[in-house]
Design a protein around this nucleic acid. Structure first.
Lengths: 346, 346
DNA sequence: ATGAAAGCGCTAACAG
DNA sequence: CTGTTAGCGCTTTCAT
């Protein structure tokens, strides 16, 4: 009964007063430093019992103000409504909560100015660490964070000239491999449709495509589209591109977003897959599996990415790994070959 | 130069000292109460100029500790990786940032215990408001929040016996209408596959289906699946259900997640849509649009939901609307009729 | 019109 | 082993 009545926030001072001990003692007990400070067994028990009874919880704001720590991790992705990032966010969230950390996330829209604002907001709030899929142009801010000894893990892409912890996939090999698959199937006029971007992962993907084509001696056809969240502004250019290049026999979409939009265009134009046009996309995704025919796709190891990201960050936070300068983790992808890219399937 | 050197966090006390005024004066100016407090023009300008120069930003933690406000809104959804919730989160996030609020979000998994924990964590952190798609069983916590005068907006579903601000869609009419569409197309054995749930929106959807079938005099076939994030645990039961009930001529999926899994089953079993089986799903979604044939779906007005949610909450936060007890907003859905449910299409 | 000072709740250095 | 005390940076009452 008393328990429930204790609605008024009770503070460490109240406990100290009530139990005739000092705030310090309570604070030490709370922080598990009772042994270390050789506080009497009896006192410890009395305090713990009381805390239990009244359901006391320390005020995290005061703690943060005092210690400069917040138990909050900032997660900055390109767009939280993108299924790739949403899934990663979900997994990271779970792991973080289990380790006593909260996640505060946001979408950067690949906009460096917005990202800068967000970072400075997070710094003010004393977040303890950062997980970022960085847009270009925020090298300085990241460096500043590192200089301030803030744990920063980048993922999905990296920034040149900034040495941070990093979790990535092998983009170049992934597209190289998928393009090879297309050439082995006998496709020769293979287009690559992607967002126009200098982000590391996008450049690597493009490189992989180019390299594979070069080896085969085929001509590359690259269509770059301005990055945009709005489907219509992606569908438009793809439609124009496919209409203009009827001679293509395969198309490779460089991201899941481009891929889904591209698939929509193909459906709308009544193009037959794979007889008119073979299709491959980066990122696996419901839509691709369930399309008829199912679409060959490069599947990123979402769980592994999330796991590695959070593990690296938690390690940093536990300060045990201060001496490690930085680590890069590169994960492999899987090429799921399906009907959309099989010459034989016809 | 001086500007950049000022890396050490500068505080209100520093400013006061530097400018030979008191902390109070600075604070008043900072909070736009200079006029009200009749502080000298000249002083105000000097202070503002200085603040500008050194790029001073008040420490929000200290502000929160002192005022009890945090400028943070908690957003609790069922699962942030569900595209419906991810899209809503994205829109809400944008609007919130524009109004000076940050969003801290999390997934409840429809688990009342987890949700309770999260709420108590948020309370400790003094978040200013809550946006929640509530699981059942947290009526007491919501009531407690309301009693504590915390702004709470529920959406997607409501809780009986708890009167809060609310943004919903007309679930019952939506399924009624879609079921009617099926009967009008001549389908008679129409199954309804859904998560097993007593959440208001799920009950309403089921009611709509039942009502429409009742009017037609057809027998309902309802398959309830345990709520789960794991696709395999959804696909299994649906597969079993469809295999066992070969006589069905149409199936209505009650959520986007069930719908996508169901579609996968249909594909895997080689069932022809709509000739073997017509398909309708709640929630519109890429997958449905791009399926062949495209799937008839009930589309929720995502933007309108997000807009209304945040508008209602911001109103509450601006305290101007203290007198309003609570408001419910019910939005309409659109039934997008596509090939998957057309008898004539064959 | 401005300033001194209390205090939000907590931690930790420093005494005893 | 335990208590006193000084802040963390800010807001706000009360005095001047």
């Amino acid at each position: 009964m008393i328990i429930k009545q204790q609605l008024k926030k009770i503070s460490i001072a109240d406990i100290a007063r009530e139990l005739h001990v000092s705030k310090t003692t309570v604070s030490f007990i709370l922080n598990g430093r009772a042994e270390e400070k050789r506080i009497g067994r009896e006192v410890v028990e009395r305090v713990q019992k009381f805390i239990e009874e009244v359901g006391y919880r320390p005020n995290p704001l005061a703690q943060s103000l005092r210690t400069g720590k917040s138990n909050i991790i900032a997660l900055m992705v390109e767009d939280i409504s993108n299924p790739f990032f949403a899934s990663i966010a979900r997994l990271i969230e779970d792991r973080a909560y289990k380790n006593g950390y909260k996640i505060i996330y946001c979408s950067t829209d690949n906009d460096p100015a917005k990202t800068r604002d967000l970072i400075s907001m997070f710094r003010e709030r004393h977040v303890d660490g950062y997980i970022i899929a960085p847009p270009e142009g925020i090298e300085d801010e990241i460096s500043a964070l590192m200089k301030a000894k803030m744990p920063v893990v980048l993922f999905d892409r990296h920034l040149n000239d900034v040495k941070t912890d990093l979790v990535e996939i092998d983009n170049m090999f992934s597209t190289y491999n998928a393009t090879k698959h297309l050439t082995e199937q006998g496709f020769k006029k293979i287009a690559y449709v992607t967002f126009s971007s200098n982000q590391s992962q996008m450049l690597a993907r493009l490189d992989g495509y180019n390299k594979a084509l070069e080896e085969s001696g085929y001509k590359p056809f690259v269509k770059e589209i301005a990055f945009n969240q709005n489907d219509d502004l992606i569908i438009g250019p793809i439609t124009a591109f496919l209409k203009k290049n009827k001679n293509l026999d395969a198309v490779f979409f460089g991201t899941n977003h481009v891929g889904t939009c591209g698939l929509q265009v193909i459906t709308d134009l009544g193009i037959q897959v794979p007889s008119d046009l073979a299709v491959v996309s980066f990122d696996d995704y419901n839509v691709f599996k369930m399309h008829s025919p199912p679409v060959t796709a490069i599947s990123q190891p979402i769980e592994a990415i999330a796991d590695n990201v959070i593990t690296v960050l938690l390690n940093r936070l536990n300060t045990s790994s201060q001496h490690i300068s930085s680590q890069s983790i590169v994960l492999k992808t899987d090429l799921h070959i399906r009907g959309s890219s099989l010459r034989a399937a016809q």
